[in-house]
Amino acid sequence: MDISTKTTAPPAPAEPPAAPLKTTRGATRPGDRIFLGLSRGSGILLLVIMAAIAAFLTYRASLVLSKNDGNFLTTFEWNANNTPPVFGIAVLAFGTVVSSVIAMVIAVPIAVGIALFITHYAPKKIGGAIAYVVDLLAAVPSIVYGLWGALFLVPHLTGFYSWLNDYFGWTHVLEWQGGAPRTLLAVGILLAIMILPIITNVSREVFRQAPLMHQEAALALGATRWEVIRMAVIPFGRSGVISASMLGLGRALGETMAVATVLSPSFEINASLLDPGGGTFAQNIAAKFSEATEQGRDALIASGLVLFVITLVVNGAARAIIARRKEYSGANA
């Protein structure tokens, strides 16, 4: 439409052609109206689903929260099948946050490294092949990571745990009593491996779009490759890396099966990451679900609602950063 008005009437009178166009559009053919209705309807359906998720979870949660004998936020217990039920999410929130933070601390630098490797260090063909493999790895289901984590990673972590205990045990954070290494640190390491592909993929796309002119200008001034990356690539890609990390964080927060297979949960908070202590929201739901009564399920739904809100905030923030960056680079181009 824009093109036709531009070419036919370069000066002011753009309104006369616009008016008849609008009237013809108003009297659309029935097929058009049905099709528009269908497609708009499915768009609205998505909004309805989102609203329904929030509404139904809140409703079921409210049924049990009023009966809760403990404090939902501070109780260190999960006996939701009792009458009256006693349950609280303190331990779950602690475990979820700690394991995700460990995962982020490990995964983000490595993912940025791989992304830079693909875009700026590896020969072009190898870089493409690696990018392809990383794409495929993003598709490996979480239950397979969980199986691998429980049967391969955990037995191989005992050496690492005792090493940490020997050299860093004095911090109390990395103290180990010698139990099976199915603790928050192991979960964090496994989550890091799982979210590597997604962070790598998004960062890679951002680094690839870094303006070539800036990089060449830096090279022409005698910068080394690292200085080019520091001055011309990373400043450009910073917001992209942040949002990629938050997407990864969202995934780590909500990860269920890998945590459920690896972690041996306990309803206490332990200062040491190497000793049992803490669970995660998703893991607790999966573990407690099969023996939960209807009231117990409502309690699990209440904890799921908290997880839903947290991931909503994290993902919304990540998307907002991406959207702002898009506008910015669009104005630039």
Partner: peptide
Amino acid sequence: KAVTFFVDVMTGIPSIVAGLFILSFWILI
């Protein structure tokens, strides 16, 4: 705009939350 935003947000819904939603709506209610 709202649909675009919520499609983005929906991509990040943990799978267990989607399961809990259907559980509360389809099975419990």
